[in-house]
Design a protein around this nucleic acid. Structure first.
Lengths: 240, 240
DNA sequence: TGTATTTTCATTGTCGACACGAAATATTCA
DNA sequence: TGAATATTTCGTGTCGACAATGAAAATACA
């Protein structure tokens, strides 16, 4: 299941400042988990991580506790810590929550956005366009997440933003898993929808923002479901 | 700001099994934070905690990281960890999210509840009634939270349940803070509303569940706001 | 040869000690 | 006397070592 980086690069042996260790480990592992560089369900060895980062196990462990708190990792007491498996059984609930958060955050953004925030969102839309032009799928996935996270932040409700970002991150793993089915047409649909969303937020049209957010969510859910179905068809091709 | 337990009781020096320490510390501190036994903003000393629980600082620290992950505690690097302050500035957003989660979880409960879950919810309603009869305010606050958490669980969406429980817990601190304004009339209104909510869930009437959930949320928000206003009026009485 | 029991082994959970950082306090200098 | 600087103090962040645990390997037994 390895993607572009099968073996994580050894970090340079830089003397890190006190208190930087856990944060670095946390961010690095979070990235690798969301990029599927670390396979879901695979075990994580504290000692190897300690060697890799050139620090002792204590800060590694604290990073693991933080990762577990965000559900990125599951701890089996006295045994292993494993990368959180992708929970396909909960997918319908995931889609439901994702859809609601799309709507709520986009509504609030339309109501509460400042000019600065609007500019930041527009900037991300440009970056996304560039990624689409370059057919850079990983970049598209990452920027798409940042685009919606920026919208959520402009809505200024921490509770929604936190949940939404978590859902978007979990969605990143799903998209990565099925990104092979990305064809040229789909990203351009997203691009158009993002444009409409941006316009509704700029015009502070809450109901329009709500409608396009719901449509956008449905679009994405449908795409992932299609990708999964195709994937299953591929599996069905093997002899039984 | 101390309530009924100003000095946390010294725990008996029981030899705890491996791996039980962090959980015990986490649960105990979470309880004390939500009960306002630990004052919001007050510093937490790792060494004192280690002595209190009879374990070393390492598991204490892991518990702190977990508490920080749930927002119950704030870590100031190289300095302190403090009990999370109550963020009055974010109160409107808190109320907004609380209200939406009330609605969503109650809707889903009406749609998805099993007979067993219904019985469990009804049981908690009885416990709540008993607490009201006994005028036991702390019990009322705790059981009320458990009642709605049970409803959320019956809705079977982990994402909503997690956020809702977090919001309910944060609300517990607010209720504790203002529970002096609890008069005999209010709890009985809640009791009635809970009854209606239960009936809607039992009848699997999603729209009715939604309506009563929204009304219930508004009721609670209004009560807390009233309590805060009264509180401010009391402050206004002192000489300036 | 197959099953139950013991031993080994790998990996975690916990500990005590020490190094580092920021604030509080004492000291110097104008 | 007051500001700038050095020193102390206090608590955290990190380390290396060790004990507990559960799985796997080795052994005993029928």
């Amino acid at each position: 299941m390895s993607l572009e980086e099968p073996v994580p690069a050894q970090l340079p042996e830089v003397k890190r400042k006190r208190g930087q260790g856990v944060g670095a480990v946390f961010e690095t592992l979070k990235h690798e988990i969301l990029n599927l560089t670390l396979e879901p369900g695979s075990p994580i060895d504290e000692v190897k991580l300690a060697e890799r980062f050139g620090i002792s196990r204590t800060p590694i462990r604290e990073a693991m506790v933080k990762l577990a708190g965000e559900g990125l990792v599951v701890t089996l007491p006295n045994r292993f810590t494993i990368v959180a498996p992708i929970d396909f059984a909960n997918l319908p609930q995931f889609f439901d929550a994702l859809s609601l958060m799309y709507r709520v955050t986009t509504r609030l953004a339309a109501a509460n956005r400042t000019e600065n925030e609007l500019a930041a969102i527009r900037e991300l839309q440009h970056t996304y366009t560039a990624a689409v032009e370059a057919s850079d799928v990983p970049a598209m996935i990452e920027v798409n997440r940042n685009f919606h996270a920026a919208i959520a932040r402009a809505g200024k409700n921490r509770y929604y933003t936190d949940l939404f970002v978590r859902l978007l991150d979990e969605g990143r793993r799903l998209l990565r898993l099925y990104y092979s089915s990305y064809n040229d047409k789909l990203p351009r649909i997203y691009l158009q929808e993002h444009e409409v969303m941006l316009a509704a937020i700029e015009a502070q049209d809450i109901e329009a923002a709500d409608r396009i957010a719901e449509a956008h969510a449905e679009q994405i859910v449908r795409q992932i479901q299609n990708a999964m179905t195709e994937d299953r068809r591929l599996n069905a091709g093997i002899s039984l």
